[in-house]
């Protein structure tokens, strides 16, 4: 599975430009699903199982896109100014490298701030592509790049750019592979444009019209020196979403996930994320409303080029999903 994760995280796919990731996912899941289609925004919507009298339409959403940058101006000396696709933190960016979809490489630099303690903004940063004039610059306004950082297997833990949310994509792929039979119609949705405002999940949820929705994404932890206050930690199991900045989970869905984890003896944590939201927000408000929550893989250093997850958490998330989807669902 680690090789699948490596393959997925290393493909560039900033918001709106997910097609390479989508193709890779298609190849992986095609043998394991009954149906597959791409909607007008680029969401890959798969279906497994045909449901029965008591089966539900369950939508699981993992987003294909990652944060990235887009060129907004090339100056006369060939430096490319840029804007963000998704939330890019300036503090994580200077000195980092990017790879453009057209193959060009560059390093991110910044104007010297007025004082040492001053916080810079992306408008004061640029990409240096190693050229000396606008004419020689291999990129133009509108070109898109992803952060460049290779996958590293640290044994128990793995680190890479784009773990948010390729780790969710990997979990969803492996879940579809491992799910031998289900009484439900399981819609595995690989969504687009999550990082710019859960846009793909909005249209995918409308199309699928599910009875139940789950986002498979990453969530922040509080187990590093002077980290934001949170009881979550790497290695303590999948995180069940109770609330985040954009939504409050349906308590019946939370109870259902929790009961499943207890039954299958899978460790789990309860997640209240103060900043950020996931595809679950979009699913919840679709049409006449959808009972929704999320299962998240705890992650350190989210939205930096080195996001870290724990391999046991990944395996346990898959185990939990397979367990939940293999049996009838009763929300109460």
């Amino acid at each position: 599975m680690k090789s699948l994760i490596q393959k997925l995280v290393e493909i560039p796919g900033p918001s709106g430009y997910e097609s390479q990731v989508r193709e890779a996912v298609k190849d992986e899941v095609e043998p394991y699903v009954d149906e597959m289609q791409v909607d007008p925004l680029g969401n890959l919507i798969t279906r497994k199982g045909s449901g029965g009298d008591k089966g539900l339409k369950v939508m699981l959403s993992a987003h294909l896109d990652e944060i990235g940058v887009m060129v907004s101006h090339v100056d006369k000396n060939g430096f490319a100014r840029f804007t963000q696709l998704g939330t890019v933190f300036p503090r994580n960016t200077a000195g980092g490298r990017v790879r453009f979809l057209n193959g060009a490489h560059g390093v991110i630099g910044m104007e010297v701030p007025p004082s040492r303690s001053a916080v810079t903004t992306l408008n004061k940063m640029y990409i240096d592509l190693g050229v000396t004039s606008k004419k020689d610059c291999p990129v133009k306004v509108g070109d898109v790049a992803a952060f460049e950082r290779t996958f590293q297997d640290l044994g128990k833990r793995m680190v890479s750019k784009a773990m948010d949310d390729r780790i969710g994509v990997a979990v969803l792929i492996e879940t579809l592979k491992a799910l031998k039979s289900t009484p439900h119609q399981v819609f595995g949705v690989f969504s687009v444009q999550e990082e710019v405002g859960v846009r793909g999940a909005t249209t995918a949820a409308f199309g699928v019209n599910p009875d139940l929705g789950l986002a498979i994404d990453t969530t922040g932890v509080g187990d590093t020196p002077k980290s934001p206050r949170s009881d979550l930690a790497l290695g303590k199991g999948p995180a069940i979403k109770i609330k985040d900045f954009g939504m409050i989970s349906d308590p019946r869905v939370v109870a259902w996930i929790e009961a499943g984890a207890k039954r299958a003896k899978i460790p789990y944590q309860l997640d209240i994320l103060i900043g950020g939201s996931t595809d679950a927000r979009a699913i919840q408000l679709s049409r006449a409303g959808v009972p929704s929550s999320g299962i998240s893989i705890p992650s350190r250093y989210i939205h930096s080029p080195s996001e870290m997850v724990d391999f046991d958490d990944v395996k346990n998330t898959i185990k939990l999903l397979v367990h939940l989807l293999s049996r009838p669902i009763k929300l109460q």
Partner: peptide
């Protein structure tokens, strides 16, 4: 939190 109940009831 989301004005969500209103959105979905009006749609429903």
């Amino acid at each position: 939190v989301t004005l969500g109940g209103a959105a979905v009831s009006s749609f429903d």
